[in-house]
Simulated scan of single mutants.
Amino acid sequence: MALSHPVTVAVLADCHIHPGGGPDWTPQILEALAGVDLIVTLGDMGEAAGLDRLAQIAPVLGVRGQDDSDDPRTALQVRVLQLGATRLGCVFDPVAAGLASAVDPFTPDFNFRPRCRELFGGEITALLFASTHVPQSSWFPGCMALNPGSATLPSGMEDGVPGAFIRLEVAEGRFDFQFVEIGR
């Protein structure tokens, strides 16, 4: 299916939102998400209230991590997003999914391609994954691996490391991404 206009996707992970008892969305994060068409979460988002708040900005869907309440938007362990010709494979932990031998830095497993075809029903443009709280991007022949880090609990937070998420711009024949840093 062709895209009639570019689509902007925010990719979030590892936020561990627990209103009243842990991290919550800051005004800076919510402001940075303004204008996106879709929000994809990659697990460890916390309570459904956090997803509900995101849903006030744009539709939300994603995959389940270890710290997620039961919610149909994130009930799947594996998800593929088809945006025009762009196919995005989503998992929480690529090592557990058999796609990588390590995640920091991302090291694709020797059977990455066949495992992608098995998990996602075909080739993917990019693998979106989480579980490290550290933003990173890796390219290897024919595929990208992208981790948004955490907007609320970045690794190194005690040293002033900013939170982060990924903003994807997808148009027919084009796929771009950028890390958006959230100041503390």
Rank of each mutant, 00 (worst) to 15 (best):
P162G: 03
V7H: 09
F120V: 13
T107G: 07
Q66W: 07
L61G: 08
V91D: 01
T152Y: 03
F110V: 15
L168K: 03
L119Y: 03
F110W: 02
P94H: 01
L12W: 01
D159L: 13
Q82R: 15
G65N: 05
F120K: 06
V63F: 11
R117F: 11
A32N: 01
R167W: 13
G43W: 05
G98P: 08
A49N: 02
L127Y: 02
L99D: 06
I17C: 05
R73A: 04
E47P: 04
V9H: 01
F179I: 11
L51P: 04
P141A: 14
R53G: 07
L83P: 03
E47Q: 15
L33T: 08
L38K: 00
V78Q: 00
C15P: 07
E169S: 15
A75R: 05
L81N: 03
A171D: 06
G160R: 12
N147A: 12
F110A: 14
P148C: 01
Q136S: 14
A2N: 14
G160P: 03
A48H: 10
L51S: 02
D159Q: 13
V11H: 04
L168P: 01
A2C: 02
C15A: 14
L88E: 07
I182K: 00
Q66K: 02
P114W: 15
H5S: 15
Q66T: 12
H5E: 15
P6K: 09
E169M: 13
I182A: 05
M1Q: 07
P27E: 13
G149V: 05
G122R: 04
V63L: 05
I166E: 09
R115M: 12
Q178P: 03
P154G: 07
T125I: 07
D67T: 10
T152I: 05
V78R: 08
P19G: 04
L99C: 09
P154F: 15
D159I: 04
R115T: 15
H16R: 05
D176H: 13
L119K: 03
T8L: 14
R64G: 03
P148A: 09
G21P: 09
A164E: 00
